[in-house]
Design a protein around this nucleic acid. Structure first.
Lengths: 137, 137
DNA sequence: TAATAAATGCACTTCCCTTGCATTAAATAA
DNA sequence: TTATTTAATGCAAGGGAAGTGCATTTATTA
């Protein structure tokens, strides 16, 4: 049993061939991926299967969704200590207007936001857009 | 000529009947609206016309889009001093998980975000989700 | 090996955004 | 005022992504 298989089982996800492939793909690409990215990477895979794979991963704390404002749902592997399951996932995301890629800036926590009287915060989403490291030169 | 007509002309937008109605509707509702909201409010209006009305408004600095993470584009009237045309629109938005409404918290500016070396910020989108004033009791 | 449960594949639906094009209305020129 | 041009509207259709139902295949466990 490989390390990935062990990891998936640990997360209560049955390590099927497809799931292992998807996991490997996401691990290899450091950035967040869209469903269509994976679809293009594995041409013979069914979109629905991939869709449900990501859903399963999400439900079991393996990936989290990112809304980067492009209108397309992105997914990123949870890193160690990722708190996405519990209420607030406070790291911010950066979307590059040039290469269209979105990265989790895990180390950058979202500062505390003061809200007007009566407002109750449950979740915060912060997306910065601009040029990434590779595109800003 | 009414005040609204004068305002629209000032923004280089021809004050047609439809546009005046849409403007009034948005001014009456303090929250941001989706295309479908307006569609429902004026049953006899064409969806495309409303869509293009909002687009025209946006291009001329009358409204700005809000991405509140629901996947549905919202629009809000620009207030005096709204900087949405120039690069950064730095106020934050609040989306209520209960009543599904999104408001601009114009007075609440987004704090400065420190990015890693090499990253260049052009735009920032901050959405807080939770319970609004009316729903938190 | 049989029975059960989970994962996959295919077809189809829905929702929202967007565009093309003909038609109607308004603005400007003659 | 009428003719010409330009802008706005209405209708139809397209496209992309998310999501669901159900039959089939694969894996698990009794």
């Amino acid at each position: 049993m490989t390390e990935i298989e062990r990891f998936l089982e640990d997360k209560k996800v049955r390590p099927t061939a497809m799931r292992i492939l998807v996991y490997k793909y996401m691990a290899k690409r450091q950035i967040s991926v869209a469903l269509s990215d994976i679809e293009n990477a594995f041409t013979k895979a069914e979109r629905t299967t991939l869709y449900r794979t990501l859903k399963t991963f999400e439900e079991n704390g393996i990936v989290h969704q990112i809304d980067d404002g492009t209108g397309i749902t992105k997914y990123a592997l949870c890193e160690i200590g990722c708190n996405c399951e519990i209420e607030q996932d406070l790291h911010l995301h950066f979307h590059c207007n040039n290469c269209q890629e979105t990265v989790c800036l895990t180390a950058h926590k979202i500062p505390h936001i003061n809200l007007p009287e009566g407002y109750l915060a449950k979740d915060v989403n912060l997306v910065v857009k601009g040029l990434c490291k590779n595109c800003s030169n």
